[in-house]
Design a protein around this nucleic acid. Structure first.
Lengths: 228, 228
DNA sequence: TTTATGTGATAGTAATACTATCAAAAAAAA
DNA sequence: TTTTTTTTGATAGTATTACTATCACATAAA
């Protein structure tokens, strides 16, 4: 059996669907490699075109601008992650163990998945860690949100919030805790590698440290001590 | 008594100290207004120059590029915030009440401070909420960090971590919890206003909701229930 | 075999992100 | 007070970015 994972993307994200043509898939594949290499600020369609062996105009036929392309690949990542979370948790009955598994998935370095051919998930994970927030930290968040560009992120957040409520139906902030876990899984990892004074994981650079912190945070919140 | 707050900035941040000249202070003042208005992406030195009534070249004499200027004003904000935290907590003996006060300061909409004339702290707070992360989410974090550009942020983080340890000397992740509080005070607020599905505060838009969430998160972590 | 679709090649434009030069004005030093 | 230094304003110029437009060719679908 040779299943391949197909993620249906929001049509507002592109002008022409990149998954349907060879050039389109090259754009996705190489934009991930290039953004990973030079960072989003220095990433341009011209450089991408040169890398692929096409022209700038060719890329503009697929994406309106580089921000849309970023939102596209970041959204793809969130969708893929939600799928991955589903696969790895749907046979687990205990919501607490589910949540631990999710934290592990969020905070662990991805090994490249074989299921998709034109996306390098490991690079993509590293991109999302550094550039992910730039997808929504803009003046046009509200417009972008109205076009449902952030639906995959919100869906993942909701899915985790549901499990949080399974752990403790009385917990008051399931969504905020969920978005906190997602963001911090990336940020603490970024801090650990780049601004270690902002973490307690010194020069260690071990994903498990971040996982330990997040587990402590989440389960302390979900099963609090009785206080006056 | 007419005290004015003077924050000593890292000299690597600028080419010429903007606090020492009239034009320099105009640059700081107006860059805050302009970045707040158009967002960092669309902010250019040309627009800033036109607003001030000087030339592009004039601004380049003070700042190497717009990213450095962003780091400058964001750093100023963190220094100012640490000072504010200090002032509002040094007469409090209970570390728990201190921590609550800090959370309140971090998550509450700033009213413009009278202490500084050439900075609008309220606008600056809103800028940091949306653009703050862009100061360090770059390919050159490591270099910037070596030049100590992020010291004010790290100092604030450390100051809060110290108080966290006063609350519970055995808590294992004081710095990570501290950076989590700082980041989430901004992010949950940003989400509440722009992507409310990522929070539990629907259309309410009340800072106190974010404060309640953060307090719950922090104190549950610091005073956990005993679990197997 | 016509027609539609996708691509490559080329050209062009307005704006961005700078750097360089020069002279006038203002401030500091002699 | 005069000289010297510092700061600013004005102008010019360059490479790159972020696009848009056009045309012809190749290929695939009708």
């Amino acid at each position: 059996m040779n299943l391949s994972l197909q993620i249906k993307m929001n049509e507002k994200l592109f002008l022409r669907n990149p998954e349907e043509t060879d050039l389109g898939r090259q754009i996705i594949l190489n934009s991930i490699v290039l953004i990973h290499k030079v960072g989003f600020e220095l990433f341009t369609f011209k450089k991408l075109a040169e890398k692929i062996g096409t022209t700038e105009a060719g890329i503009y036929r697929y994406f309106e601008n580089k921000h849309r392309l970023l939102v596209y690949i970041v959204s793809w990542y969130w969708s893929w992650l939600e799928y991955k979370v589903m696969v790895h948790t749907n046979n687990i009955s205990s919501p607490e163990i589910k949540l631990k598994k999710i934290i592990e998935i969020l905070a662990t370095q991805v090994k490249d998945d074989v299921q998709t051919k034109h996306v390098d998930e490991q690079l993509l994970h590293e991109i999302v860690r550094m550039e992910g927030a730039k997808a929504y930290l803009t003046r046009h968040v509200t417009d972008d949100n109205k076009q449902r560009l952030f639906k995959p992120y919100k869906d993942l957040c909701t899915a985790i919030a549901v499990i949080i409520l399974e752990c403790n139906p009385k917990y008051k902030f399931p969504r905020s805790l969920s978005s906190t876990i997602i963001e911090m899984a990336h940020y603490q990892n970024f801090f650990m590698r780049n601004l270690p004074a902002l973490t307690d994981f010194g020069g260690i650079k071990d994903d498990r440290k971040v996982i330990a912190f997040l587990e402590d945070l989440v389960f302390a919140s979900l099963f609090p001590a009785k206080r006056k």
